[in-house]
């Protein structure tokens, strides 16, 4: 779908817009546990910055920055962070995702351990949502032929 379309204005503006969008997304993820926002919204905004890059350039140029293999790896890493923190609480002798017990391995108060645990889970959710949203967009935009054309070349 997305063919190369040379336009200096669009490409420059989009390239300049991508870093502020990603910075805002990281802000939303980092402040998600005590203000509006969180992993899901921040991940969506991160994915939007990548989609902007795909629209301004083309699929090949964007794949150089983040290939489909790395994208799937990010998706798995996000799920592993989320479930790993949850399982760590079970291993330490509490319920799944009950972060209060984490203060036995981190030298902080139980309340601060809860806050840090939620932050870790938000980061995991953010990475997974970003990877899945980018993957869905690339699959829709290329008609499901993105990975196959990569192997042919």
């Amino acid at each position: 779908m997305i063919n190369r379309f040379e336009d200096v204005i669009i490409q420059t503006i989009c390239r300049l817009l991508v870093p502020p969008i990603q910075l805002f997304a990281l802000y939303v993820i980092a402040h998600g546990h005590y203000s509006p926002g969180g992993g899901f919204q921040g991940g969506c905004i991160l994915a939007a910055s990548f989609i902007l890059l795909v629209i301004a350039y083309d699929l090949k140029e964007a794949s150089k920055r983040m290939s489909e293999k790395i994208n799937i790896m990010y998706c798995c890493i996000g799920v592993i962070i989320y479930s790993g923190i949850g399982l760590l609480c079970v291993i330490l002798g509490s319920n799944y995702l009950d972060y209060g017990i984490l203060n036995s391995i981190i030298p902080v108060e139980p309340a601060a351990a809860r806050s840090l645990g939620i932050l870790g889970v938000e980061i995991g959710v953010g990475i997974a949502v970003m990877a899945v949203m980018v993957s869905i967009f690339i699959n829709i935009a290329s008609g499901g032929e993105h990975g196959e054309s990569e192997e042919l070349e």
Partner: peptide, 13 residues
Amino acid sequence: AVGAGISTAFFFG
């Protein structure tokens, strides 16, 4: 983030 941002991009695709 989702309704106005991502899903519109998906519809375009």
